[in-house]
Design a protein around this nucleic acid. Sequence first.
DNA 1: TATTTATTATTGTGATCACATTTTGAAGAT
DNA 2: ATCTTCAAAATGTGATCACAATAATAAATA
Lengths: 231, 231
Amino acid sequence: MGALKLAPLARPDGMPTHEYAHRRLRQAIMVGSIRPGESLTIRGIAEAMESSPTPVREALRRLSSEGALKVLDNRRIMVPKMTADRFGELMALRAVLEQHGARRAVGHITERQIDRLAEIDRALDDAIARKDKATALLLNQEFHRTLYTANPDQMIMPMVESVWLQLGPFLGIAMEHVAQLYVVDRHQEAIAALRKRDEDAVAAAIAADIREGIGGFDRGAIENLLRLAGQ
Amino acid sequence: MGALKLAPLARPDGMPTHEYAHRRLRQAIMVGSIRPGESLTIRGIAEAMESSPTPVREALRRLSSEGALKVLDNRRIMVPKMTADRFGELMALRAVLEQHGARRAVGHITERQIDRLAEIDRALDDAIARKDKATALLLNQEFHRTLYTANPDQMIMPMVESVWLQLGPFLGIAMEHVAQLYVVDRHQEAIAALRKRDEDAVAAAIAADIREGIGGFDRGAIENLLRLAGQ
DNA sequence: TATTTATTATTGTGATCACATTTTGAAGAT
DNA sequence: ATCTTCAAAATGTGATCACAATAATAAATA
């Protein structure tokens, strides 16, 4: 039996247990605190968050539909293992999806929202300067999310989040083995392009940001990291 | 209480109830047999498929994560309503996602698999000639799925299926009000491009197929259909 | 010591129940 | 007629239990 350790998380009043379980597990996976290949038990999770199997199972179903977990033939549940090929596909998908999302946001985003992006980027630079990898990752996600959700009818966010979620466990490994994150994000470039309403330039900035920013490793680096982590 | 009618579906031996419920509801939504705005009750579904609330709830959670269902603030569950804007976003997303999937399949697909595509396309033409809209829709999906899954590491299928699922209820409406489906698919074009391993041509064929094929309506047609259906 | 077998513990699963909230429908008042 | 009030029915939710299948551990065999 694995003594599952789960970071605590505030529970808003009235939130159902299954949703709370989903949020908490999701966060744990997103920041890579559950190792790929590690198997989870319903009862173990239920005990860890002081509830019962029923709502936990609902949370696990959702997470498996989101690609964060994989249900084996034994019906056992685990965090999928990463491979260099899978990582490549995920990053390529991220690029396509997010470029699209960025393009479809250009026509909707307000100056005020662009200001908000700049604000998030400042906080992000600050976190990087403090070498606070975890919050840097979160703020980077918030930057992208804020951009894409400027389009009120946007349909990509659940899919983008799914990709982030699938990348999460590997980023957890990466952050353990990479001494410093020397991040060269393209957020300023994106912001400038947004102010000019230049759709192509926005898309280019986002593509470059994904390719070279946080989590942007080349294939060799990936294989190295996977070997180091014994995957 | 709504007397929910659910098309029967064979249940493979040993399949868990929650998965069976998921499959059956999913299929019902995909072919548009549940109207947008129609609300579902857990007990109603459980009764309709002769089981109990527990596994049905798991199925509903998965479907909500897949975008097929929406959980309201009252915690009640319904099929999302369609709008012209939402439809536009979904179709644009479909185009981006599937072009990407097609491109990433070109390097992996075998001649044998291309033959299989041709076979599916023949069956599809046959269904169209018989004016059998339902199977035409299914075969069209199978054509696309077969293409994209030629890439063994492909990560887009769950997302493509999610989009199809969200389009489903509206296609159900469309098929009721559109007398004939005069479909001009671009499958032959795609097949020819695949044999030549011409990635750009494949992507172009898929884009055109989505734009002009089954479910490819212009904005005016959408608004008309939504008005006709009283949405 | 290594391998197989048998026993025990653990796990996923699904039905049931109790509780709180919401919805519904009828009776009454304006 | 329209709106309000209130009781009854329906619904989402989560804990618990029993069962079958799987995994883990101990015992026995080679």
